[in-house]
Amino acid sequence: MKIIGLIVAVLTGGLLVYAAEDFPAWSDPASPASTYLSPHFIEKTIEETSVPNIVTAVLADYRGFDTMFETTVIFSAGVAVFLLLRTSGPKTQQTRLYRHQLTGVTLRIKEGADLPPSDNFERIDRFWTPHDLIIKTVCRLLIPFIQLFGLYVIAHGHHSPGGGFQGGVILGASIILLAISHDLRTAVKRVAEKMDAVLCAIGVLIYAGTGALCLLLGLNFLDYKALAPVLHVDSIMARSHGILIVEIGVGIAVMFTMIWIYNNVSSGGKYNQGL
């Protein structure tokens, strides 16, 4: 297998090197990729949408249909991970372990028995390890600032690098950091599994709903000019605001898909302590 792999890889590489002779030289301004469509985007974006970041404008406006289905792909990946890991698998967990947080006493409770009546008990697993106080405290302090930065990245994507995808991933990473520094149950208590599923669908729905609203108002699907009477702005600013609405939808979908995938992958679908 190793020899076949080597032969295939070297053959492919040889063919590509042979083809690379015909590529335009690197950083050539007159290369075909930079001459047909992209000058139009660079020169007309600010007139047509008033968005300085050309990448954001092309992403959510000119190629909005493409991005909508990319978001759908991310959503379906989240659902696929859920179906693979969460719905089946060995049902073990006969007994449950509860640890009293003040004294460190651990109780083993058989299936069907009652839970301890106190609030000081936390549920733990066989491979539970004590958490480092410094890591917990630092992450608790850090997470609000990470989330604030994520919101900034989504909202300021028109003027600086960023947008729904990056901001959504940063917001998701803040919850993942909570799950790593504490444990998965702490994070799931704040962002429940049902919330993950519902909100990643809502994110896609915001995107598609914006498109459908444009359709209802008499223009093409995802043509944000149609939103001008609704938002009380002119048609250029309507495109800018339409991009923002769509980016918020993308951000919500990406954020909750990342959390959902992490929860399932790191706990093998069992939603126990996690990493």
């Binding site: 990729a33 469509l37 992209s38 985007f41 660079i42 050309i54 990448v55 092309v58 992403l59 190629r63 493409d66 991005t67 990319e70 792909v73 991310i74 990946a77 989240g78 696929a80 991970v81 693979l84 890991l85 947008g163 995808f165 991933v169 990406v254 898909t257 990342m258 995938i261 399932n264 992958v265």
Partner: peptide, 23 residues
């Protein structure tokens, strides 16, 4: 900007498919 747009979405879709592969 056009290749940047295409690849930006490809990276995020890539991490989602990575999740499926790991699952």
């Amino acid at each position: 900007p056009l290749p940047h747009v295409l690849m930006l979405t490809a990276i995020v879709v890539g991490v989602a498919t990575l999740g499926v592969a790991l699952a």
